[in-house]
């Protein structure tokens, strides 16, 4: 088998029940079953996960770095979108 022909997969690991799957990296695999197994062997050796998602990298559509200015910069001066103008009562934890 020529590894050059193996597609690239993005790996997402959920570290604990109740948390989100987080992107941890990518790997090569012949198909989805093997991608999950490879992800298990590469990314969960040290108890990092309880659940694995893989998706072929070609299915991920990304924003264009060249458009970063019009995409993201306008949000920088809109502080009123952050809920920071409230006094949080002392009894409320984890805010």
């Amino acid at each position: 088998m020529n590894q050059q022909e193996w597609p690239l997969w993005e790996v997402f690991i959920r570290s604990k029940q109740g948390l989100d799957h987080k992107h941890v990296g990518s790997l090569h695999a012949a198909d989805a079953v093997m991608a999950v197994q490879n992800a298990r062997d590469v990314y969960t050796r040290r108890l990092e996960g309880v659940s694995i998602w893989v998706v072929e990298s070609k299915h991920i559509h990304a924003s264009n770095p060249d458009e970063a200015a019009e995409f993201f910069d306008p949000a920088a001066d809109k502080v009123y979108r952050h809920p920071t103008f409230y006094d949080v009562p002392d009894s409320i934890k984890h805010m």
Partner: peptide
């Protein structure tokens, strides 16, 4: 190993 992923799998 033939690829990094399988090198790790074999060592595991």
């Amino acid at each position: 190993g033939p690829i990094l992923e399988q090198d790790l799998a074999l060592a595991n």
